[in-house]
């Protein structure tokens, strides 16, 4: 039996103005897309970091240009080196801000190497041969206590070690001292920090815990980026893929890059991702997950590639 329609039922059928409905939604959307406080704080930190790094970069570069002169008869402060170099490359920089550049400050080893350099005998430029062209080199920058720098390539494979190329004078030398080979190996031995694997495990555990915490807090089974918007979702995942690709490329190709560029690259991608996620994401879980995982990856790159 049909229930009689009452005046109350009639009021329940209140129409909704569709234009007003859309306008109100647009206002809500606009308000929600305004940058959040923490994004401003993050942007502030990134800006300060970038300004600091630009300053550091400029200062280092100027000093380097001025210091590349003939080394005087004085003691060495440190040696910067880069292994696995090739004939026509010289990527080592006199700064620990560059990835994969190693630094040795062991006074004993520096003293020994410096004294052995006096046994260098100038030789004619070797004729292009497979040994020189395909040989493995270690690139070295000697930094003296007065800031002067001297740049060498040392051939490690046959007919070296003993063959040295001075990049500043463009001269080839040969060092036949019996201790030279041993001294070069000691000086350019890479020190792997024993806690790197611990850091990687800690990083993985931390990221997993953050993810579990966020899932519980925001009551979601899976943290999805970009909400319902397909373009937003693929842009975020594309950026994550870019970061991963960059990470692998850096490790396998041993790119020597100033930390400033890495921070800039990560900051730009993270900022883009946060902006997209804060606009299209369903909750803040995605934003926090993006921040924690990007910082985790960044720290991994820094610990893996920097001489710290």
């Amino acid at each position: 039996m049909n229930k009689k329609k009452t005046i109350w039922d009639d009021l329940n059928e209140l129409p909704r103005n569709e234009v007003a409905e859309k306008e109100t939604w647009q206002k809500i959307e606009k308000n929600l897309s305004k940058p959040k406080y923490f994004i401003n704080v993050l942007t502030g930190f990134v800006t300060i970091a970038i300004v600091f790094l630009i300053f550091a970069l400029l200062t280092t570069t100027n000093k380097n240009e001025m210091a590349i002169q003939q080394a005087s008869e004085q003691s060495l402060e440190s040696v910067f080196f880069l292994n696995d170099s090739v004939f026509d490359q010289f990527d080592v920089k006199p700064s620990s801000w560059y990835t994969f550049v190693q630094k040795n400050t062991d006074e004993q080893q520096l003293k020994e190497f410096h004294s052995l350099l006096t046994a260098n005998k100038k030789v004619d430029t070797p004729k292009p041969s497979i040994e020189y062209l395909n040989g493995a080199y270690v690139d070295i920058i000697l930094k003296y206590k007065n800031g002067e720098l001297k740049r060498y390539k040392v051939l490690l494979t046959k007919p070296g070690p003993g063959y040295i190329y001075d990049l500043d004078t463009k001269d080839w030398f040969y060092n036949d001292h019996p201790n030279f080979e041993d001294s070069v190996y000691k000086l350019t031995r890479e020190e792997y920090t024993s806690w790197l694997p611990i850091f990687i495990i800690f990083n993985l555990i931390f990221t997993t815990l953050v993810e579990k915490f966020l899932k519980r807090k925001y009551k979601v089974e899976k943290i999805k980026f970009g909400g319902e918007n397909t373009v937003a979702k693929y842009t975020i995942y594309g950026n994550i893929f870019l970061i991963g690709f960059f990470l692998l490329l850096m490790i396998f190709r041993q790119f020597v890059i100033h930390i400033f560029w890495i921070l800039l690259f990560f900051s730009i991608l993270l900022t883009i991702n946060i902006m997209i996620e804060s606009k299209y994401g369903k909750n803040k879980a995605g934003i926090y997950m993006l921040i924690s995982s990007t910082i985790g990856l960044l720290l991994f790159i820094l610990f893996f590639s920097l001489n710290i």
Binding site: L14, A20, L32, K219, K282
Partner: peptide
């Protein structure tokens, strides 16, 4: 909107309060 409109009995006020309601909802969805 219907709930707010019958409470405040003014359509433009109801639209504003509807906006405030959803803003609060989205910001506190967690």
């Amino acid at each position: 909107f219907k709930y707010i409109f019958y409470l405040v009995q003014n359509e433009s006020v109801a639209e504003d309060l509807l906006q405030d309601t959803f803003l609060k909802a989205y910001k506190n969805y967690n």
